[in-house]
């Protein structure tokens, strides 16, 4: 099903996605008592990178610059299917959330391949951790989405979120929804390379996960990676906000406004988590992610019984 009104939310996503890291940074700065970087810093960085040349390693092959392209394209296509707070996305069909989840997987496959292409042992290490952790995060995400599908009896994201409104929250599905949202929050933090799974600000290659994989990228390639990361955060954030913010006024602009406000709050919450929590030891991360899957499973059992 194609809904032209989805173009508005698509345009908003494309334009506003880099604001999310910006808000997170400002929140962290606030906690640390710093002034923080300008609000539009992510845009400036993208602009700067797009105007630069590039450096490539002798070791790399075309896979290296295909990685960012595929990653960015996957996120762009994924955005077509993701609704924000009950508004209709551009396209929806039964099972579209599976496509979105697998598009994230495709982006990861190529990011990891591009990292392995450099032949650097540090990037290999980051790649190894990335695939490991996201393999454990995948069941959590899909089971949480399956919970929502079972709860609403619908199979496309648009229909699912159209059914999940304040009424559902009050009708006894509250615990299940909260559990699913908790699982999705864990996935949101893990997939976007945030504390407690990964630290985006760390300075030691040995401890990075996502950052170390893109060490060798430069210029427009790096811009594509950073923009794709913003879009990924927007996609996963939209799913989470649509669950947690069951405001369905029926007016497109009001709903969109609420959704964007929700995303802003989510970014603030992420910043707070980053400020008050320490990163987990690497051996504890799998447990954290498995715990998220378990939350999803419990939610699912609560809904389907």
């Amino acid at each position: 099903m194609v809904a032209p009104s989805g173009l508005i939310s698509l345009a908003l996503a494309l334009a506003l996605a880099p604001m999310m890291p910006s808000i997170i940074n400002r929140t962290k700065a606030l906690f640390a008592g710093r002034h923080g970087q300008p609000w539009l810093q992510p845009y400036r960085e993208l602009w700067k990178l797009l105007h630069k040349g590039a450096v490539y390693s002798h070791t790399t092959t075309p896979v290296f610059f295909t990685g960012p392209i595929v990653g960015c394209a996957a996120m762009l296509v994924g955005l077509l299917f993701v609704p924000l707070a009950g508004t209709h996305p551009l396209i929806s069909f039964p099972g579209d959330f599976l496509l979105v989840a697998y598009l994230l997987g495709l982006a990861r496959f190529f990011t990891v391949s591009a990292a392995l292409d450099t032949g650097s042992s540090f990037e290999g290490m980051g790649a190894s951790r990335e695939v490991f952790f996201s393999a454990l995060a995948e069941p959590a995400l899909l089971l949480a989405l399956a919970t929502l599908a079972a709860l609403s009896g619908q199979l496309s994201l648009a229909d699912i979120f159209a059914r999940i409104d304040a009424g559902v929250l009050a009708s006894g599905a509250g615990p299940a929804l909260l559990l699913a949202a908790a699982a999705m929050m864990v996935v949101f933090l893990a997939e976007n390379a945030r504390i407690p799974v990964d630290d985006p600000n760390t300075h030691l290659e040995l401890t990075m996960i996502h950052e170390v994989m893109v060490l060798d990228h430069s210029g427009p390639d790096l811009a594509a990676i950073q923009y794709a990361a913003c879009l990924k955060m927007w996609i996963l954030g939209s799913l989470l906000v649509s669950v947690l913010l069951p405001v369905r006024s029926g007016w497109l602009l009001a709903d969109l406004g609420a959704g964007i406000l929700g995303l802003g709050l989510l970014a603030v919450a992420t910043g707070v988590v980053e400020s008050v929590m320490a990163r987990l030891r690497l051996v504890r991360v799998p447990q954290f992610l498995i715990a998220a899957s378990i939350l999803s499973i419990v939610a699912l059992v609560l809904v389907v019984r």
Binding site: T59, T61, V63, A101, Y102, G105, R108, F109, V112, S113, L116, D117, T118, G119, G124, A127, V131, F132, S134, A135, L136, A137, E138, P139, L141, L142, L143
Partner: peptide, 21 residues
């Protein structure tokens, strides 16, 4: 889902170890 994630581990490993680096 789990198998999909593990397959990604398995085949990035196979492709990466054989063809990349």
């Amino acid at each position: 889902a789990l198998v999909g994630g593990f397959a990604a581990v398995c085949f990035t490993k196979a492709f990466g170890a054989v063809f990349l680096g």
